[in-house]
Design a protein around this nucleic acid. Sequence first.
DNA 1: TATAAGTGGATTGTATACAATTTAATTTAT
DNA 2: ATAAATTAAATTGTATACAATCCACTTATA
Lengths: 221, 221
Amino acid sequence: MPMMNLDFLSNDYQEKKTKAQKIEEEIKIEILSGRLRTGQRIVEQDLCDKYGISRTPIREILRRIESEGLIETIPNRGAFVKGFTEQNIDDFYVMKSALEVQCIRWAIERITDDELDMLQQTFEFMEFYTMSDDLEKMLRINNGFDTIIYRACHNREMEKTLHRYNFYLKYAASSSRYPANYLTTVLEEHRAIFHAFMTRNPEAGAEAAEIHMLKTMIRRK
Amino acid sequence: MPMMNLDFLSNDYQEKKTKAQKIEEEIKIEILSGRLRTGQRIVEQDLCDKYGISRTPIREILRRIESEGLIETIPNRGAFVKGFTEQNIDDFYVMKSALEVQCIRWAIERITDDELDMLQQTFEFMEFYTMSDDLEKMLRINNGFDTIIYRACHNREMEKTLHRYNFYLKYAASSSRYPANYLTTVLEEHRAIFHAFMTRNPEAGAEAAEIHMLKTMIRRK
DNA sequence: TATAAGTGGATTGTATACAATTTAATTTAT
DNA sequence: ATAAATTAAATTGTATACAATCCACTTATA
């Protein structure tokens, strides 16, 4: 079994988390998962009671979520959930796809030797977990594979944006049911991308990424 | 001279604007334009004095700007400007380019007859302002042209994101000096895009958009 | 002198109070 | 009985007060 530091695989992109950041994430997941329904009004006091803090920090959290676009604030009327519909889940897949294709193209041109090394080790993990049929570990290592590529693009906005879209889609479009040969299928799609990195062929990478995204979108139908 | 309703050309994407939103925009422009320098600490009380409101709304504004990524907040230490460097201005051009190419591809497939009509009228304005050598009006009608296309993509996240990148680049990368034949050059680049719409040829549109973005990036060097 | 510990001022984080506005409930008028 | 007008309650917007934390400076100690 391959050896490496797996710290970067930790579920969350962010390093440290304050209390407010945890509450913010909880509220966002409530929205994305649909427990707070689209159009529903959010009353500040309710959140205060639920999380045991006063309105001031709750309002600051809401302003952040508002800026992210997950709620809409109407002056003097309050905050309203802008949840995800099937339609705009597709919108986000389109956005993710457009960016990811370009991200991979650039990452292949810019990746450092160290990063390529990490990518190789990570892919070996993917092969290992596919063989041992370990779905949960495979999902985590998949994230790690993506994380390395996003970083190798060396474009901070690209990195942040793709992580954000993944967060959205994880909670808004997670299916929890996987087809029979899911592991091997995904592994082979990733192998094409990985191969493009090893041969430093940006166009092959972009094409593989596009195919991978298309198949992902089809799979969830 | 062509006739049409030019309301949608109004400088700002947003409809209504509260006092807080105006202050928020002012602060963002201060950051983007470089008047607030990268790394500089933002003291809340200073903003209170400057804009004549108390800390509570100022902090809510800062939380929005923070979520957008223009400042970084370190717990108990305050907010620090994350201004734009030459490097990450390019990062945003890359992002904009990747999205705009895909946006145009989709817009050509999805544009309604009404929208196509508007696009045609707008392009006729562009021809008119190029002939009459009116730079200022040309810049505004350019925005209108883009706005129609962004909307015709019928992907709200795409629309919002591209408007946001344009806002960033407008203030962070505006050159204010234009080459001699700027108007005719830009008109011809747009003509290629417009032609792709009229012939409903997504690939031609994507290619024209890519060329347009590349030339735009080169022009500012 | 150099380093550590402590002190005061400044700044941020949170709670609360009050004003402005909206929402609902009730009354009044037709 | 229905619609308009009025009032009361609930909710949001803003200011202020206080607590917690950080930062620079002073003082104490080796």
